[in-house]
């Protein structure tokens, strides 16, 4: 294997620049390894640390975005063409240092498109924030765990550079909380029966999917006077203007659309359609008001039962859409509805 070229990120202390009194130092570039990088270099001769970036803990914590920009700029300038991988830390249970390591790793992955690894104690607050985006090797709580942490980083670094899959169970990394497909030795039916037999015998068994805990949204208080309220329509039933101008997907929608209802009395098969792939579209396409009840809302408006119907409606496809994506849509749509002055929403699903 060719030598792996690494840039190493350290704080002022591990970079040998000083203690807390030097925590305000800005990012600096040094050629070659420093501190833990020297240990790493002896453990893994096939890894070459081309340079080290150091920065003070307070400097990074106080203006993280700009500081990370500076760090990435230094790496690009001094090692841009050479770098295969970034290592940051180990930062053990150090809060500010851990946060800086996480932020630098994430920025290098996104902007330089190179893998990045840090090593943290599982209870370091940076773990919760960066575990999903960054590969984190499990480290001890303090510098006593240096040798193990650096060794762990070396092993994972080689796998990442060779684009091998990382398995927390065997590679000593902290789980990223991501579900990843893999082929088991036996079929699902065989595994189910084996698991049931263990459960019946009272033996230990491990579920393949631990039940998540759903977040609950407390209902908003009732609208005091509906006859003066602006009411909006939002649907996950995939009703869009005919032709699907935003190309919303029939499943696992990556977006939602916002469309005007101005001047429309009712939807027609010529004006609107459904793009939802999870239910029989026949009846929604015959009469799209069945899913997005514009006709009834106009009646209510005329009868004075609602103040008015918002001019814009929002639509997406709620079919195999991940909960995370749905939460994001919900937050964004709610923000826009508040800007419209909407006091109530009719949310139709299918």
């Amino acid at each position: 294997m060719a030598k792996v070229h690494v840039v190493h990120y350290l704080n002022q202390f591990f970079g040998g620049l000083g203690g807390e009194e030097k925590a305000d130092l800005g990012p600096q570039w040094f050629d070659g390894p420093k501190g833990p990088g020297q240990l790493l270099q002896t453990l893994a001769p096939d890894i070459e640390i081309v340079g080290t970036v150091t920065a003070g803990d307070n400097y990074m914590a106080e203006n993280t975005d700009a500081a990370v920009d500076e760090v990435v700029g230094l790496i690009e300038k001094n090692a841009g063409a050479e770098i295969d991988l970034l290592l940051a830390g180990p930062a053990f249970n150090a809060g500010r240092y851990g946060m800086a390591c996480g932020a630098v790793c994430q920025a290098v992955q996104e902007r330089l498109e190179k893998p990045a690894i840090t090593a943290l104690y599982p209870e370091n607050p940076a773990v919760d924030i960066y575990r999903k985006a960054v590969t984190i090797v499990r480290a001890g709580s303090d510098v006593m765990g240096m040798r193990d942490a650096v060794g762990g980083m070396v092993a994972v670094a080689k796998k990442l550079v060779e684009e091998q899959a990382i398995d927390p169970a065997t590679d000593g990394t902290i789980s990223r909380g991501l579900r990843q497909n893999t082929f088991a030795e036996s079929t699902g039916a065989q595994r189910a029966i084996d698991m049931l037999m263990r459960k019946l015998r009272g033996d230990a068994f491990e579920t393949e999917y631990a039940m998540p805990v759903f977040s609950r949204v407390p209902p908003a208080p009732p609208v005091k006077d509906l006859s003066s309220a602006t009411v909006a329509l939002v649907t996950s039933g995939g009703i869009v203007p005919r032709g699907n101008p935003d190309r919303i997907e029939s499943a696992s929608a990556s977006k939602y659309g916002e469309y005007s209802l101005k001047g429309l009395e009712r939807l027609t098969p010529e004006s609107h359609q459904t793009v939802h792939g999870g239910y029989d579209p026949t009846y929604a396409n015959q009469d799209p008001n069945r899913v997005l009840p514009l006709d009834v809302m106009r009646d209510l408006e005329r009868e004075g039962r609602i103040g008015r119907l918002a001019d814009t409606y929002f639509a997406t496809v709620g079919n195999a859409t991940s909960v995370e994506r749905a939460e994001q849509f919900g937050r964004e749509i709610a923000g826009k509805l508040i800007n419209f002055g909407a006091l109530a929403v009719i949310l139709t699903s299918t």
Binding site: A165, I166, D167, P168, A169, S175, R176, G177, L178, R179, Q180, N181, T182, F183, A184, E185, S186, T187, G188, R191, E208, Y209
Partner: peptide, 8 residues
């Protein structure tokens, strides 16, 4: 089938 999912 044999496909399954693990947490990484």
């Amino acid at each position: 089938g044999r496909l399954t999912c693990r947490e990484v």
